[in-house]
Design a protein around this nucleic acid. Sequence first.
DNA 1: CACGGATCCTGATGGC
DNA 2: TGCCATCAGGATCCGT
Length: 273
Amino acid sequence: MPELPEVEVTRRSFANAIEGAQVLAVRLGKALRWPLGCAASNLVGRSVQGVGRRGKYLLLEFDQGWLLLHLGMSGSLRFAAASELAPSGAHDHFDLITTLGTLRLHDPRRFGAVVFVESLADTAARKLLGRLGVEPLSDSFSAELFFIELKQRQAAIKQVLLMGEVVVGVGNIYASEALFMAAIRPTVRAQRLSRARVARLHAAIVEVLTRAVEVGGSTLKNFSSANGESGCFQLETMVYGRAGLPCRICATPVKLLKQGQRSTFYCPTCQKL
DNA sequence: CACGGATCCTGATGGC
DNA sequence: TGCCATCAGGATCCGT
């Protein structure tokens, strides 16, 4: 589910509200992808300094230590007063109960994770964050560096985008959308892209992610931000989820193919090799 | 080392 | 209605 825009929208939806909160208790449900990394009681008494983001991870900063949260495919967060929150359901696997409200992770498929580390330099944190590529919405994402990185990759450009080792946060929806916007065929090997085409892709990634954040992300099944709001980027996709439907630019039927077990959507007319 | 495939888990959907 | 196969926004691990 959540790619960079959904994670960023989630972050913004509760970062201010949770700042300064002190942890009163923690409730754990079923196991997520990885264990918490410490006793739940170890979090009690810590206070939240802020909420950051690295790729698709949310970084909850305590006065001491960090909580790394990942939403996996089906995760979403809520932050609300305990009185507004329903009793925890079958798919609510983590509650951080604080003086300012409860932060709850809802994740039916349990590909998500909540991991505590004392420091971002800890091996546990480095294992999760250490190989991540550049942040696409930061100044350090430059077309020239992007070009140099892509020159070293032989895999299909769509796959390279999904890997997250060159640039983070671009998942299955936005990879297809950015490649369409840049008029690049998803199957082209990354290293074969010219400087000019990489520059177009660079701009397209920034544009599509920025736009998606603006409209609250994509709500395909049940994504919502931590205050319960849905996104609407899914209404304006050019190719994602539109197999067989006419391209919004040229009316050629949108094609669907599988790359690494994932669906890729593209327009065979607009996106040239 | 870089790549491709299998894999974790549950729910929704579509065909028969 | 039931059963089964297929498919989902992710990312790690393992074999080649």
